[in-house]
Design a protein around this nucleic acid. Structure first.
Lengths: 210, 210
DNA sequence: CGCGCCGCTGAGCAAGCGCTTAGGGTCCGG
DNA sequence: CCGGACCCTAAGCGCTTGCTCAGCGGCGCG
């Protein structure tokens, strides 16, 4: 997949997989509201209102308000996992793979900062069963990144004394983009991605032009 | 102030300035509850219960639930500002000041991760006036760190092409410690501090032993 | 002992919450 | 024209929320 196609898929209707139309409008409205005010401060009346429906319509498509959060979290974390997976499975040196991983992962968190904010900061509102299911996806993403960093440390490309700690820091850095990024800020998602990729490569002591 | 005294002040009753005793017990209970469940998911009955009082007792010491959050945010951000200020005003090279700033700032976010979580992630629940007041403190902290990095860039100690972007990343890294850190994890707050200081120094391209 | 002070409680109010239910409009196959 | 499947709404139920208020009990003081 070329860069243009890759970008196109990212831009394409984020919730295209959700049908029928009314259900999709509801996820969109819920993401907006959850990102703005937080899950607990958002009312089902607000979500339905943003989607242009009466409060009762929500319950035709979702059993509870929590199910909406669960669906959003699932789709979002699967997308994040696929982004990290694409970078991990690509060929090239550990340096190249790490650069790609951080660039695309951070960029996604900026581009889709409303969705990212919800899936990264509202997890604790999920039911215990849903919570453990979603954190499972998260751990998979974590392992993919750790393996890249481990590869670089093994091959001598990176100087990373503490691989799990470094992985944690890199992931934390990318995820936190969702907290501070705003579309009207001075940086585009692309710029955030390349800046963060540069910073992280230096953090792991990769050679300047690897 | 020596390292031992510095540590002692950090450890000392975090809310010592809050009197009388009942009001202090309430802040403690509120921080615990807010960090665990979030501001909006926490009830005044829960806060009062944790402090060993009836729900009505809360309103003798605080006008509203939001005032509790405001007090916590104020005290917490002032402490964070003082930590950053101490590192910024200390003598030494930019490298030494940056190491100290990141080490103590990250360590505080780990050590007091419940307080930190509340003051960093529940800000949007504040009233508009309180919100702008608190973000003012935050901007001061930001400026102190940016100056250190700017100094290092000017003196040639650091290779930081994008000083504001790098500052943002460093601050984001330290703040996000509050999100993932738990006391029962594999790392002590001290270890987090030194790990993060090392990572950041490499991120800004400081010489290995500066 | 009597008195006032003050931190606190038990009971409860108005409002807003998540969610339910009965029923209406629209469409399609016959 | 009918009949039912599909979405949707108006109304509202039961409950919890942030917050209030009348009054109680134990203390210091004379």
């Amino acid at each position: 997949m070329g860069a243009a196609a890759e970008r196109a898929e990212e831009e394409n209707e984020e919730w295209a997989g959700v049908t029928p139309d009314a259900a999709r409008r509801l996820v969109g409205a819920a993401v907006e509201a959850f990102a703005e005010r937080g899950y607990h401060a958002t009312t089902t009346r607000d979500i339905a209102g943003r989607a242009g429906m009466s409060p009762a319509a929500l319950y035709i498509h979702y059993k509870t308000k929590e199910e909406l959060l669960y669906r959003i979290s699932g789709i979002g974390h699967e997308k994040a996992l696929r982004i990290m997976g694409a970078a991990a499975e690509a060929g090239g040196s550990a340096t190249e793979r790490l650069r790609d991983a951080v660039r695309t992962f951070a960029r996604w968190h900026a581009e889709h900062h409303t969705t990212a904010r919800v899936i990264q900061y509202e997890l604790q509102a999920l039911s215990p069963e849903h919570y453990t299911e979603i954190t499972g996806l998260r751990r998979k993403t974590d392992r993919l990144l750790r393996q890249i960093i481990q590869d670089g440390a093994d091959s001598g490309e990176f100087r990373a004394d503490d691989v799990p700690g470094t992985t944690l820091a890199v992931l934390s850095l990318c995820v936190d983009v969702a907290r501070w990024f705003t579309a009207d800020g001075p940086r585009t998602p692309d710029e955030v991605g390349t800046l963060y990729a540069d910073l992280v490569l230096r953090m792991v002591g990769a050679p300047d032009r690897g």
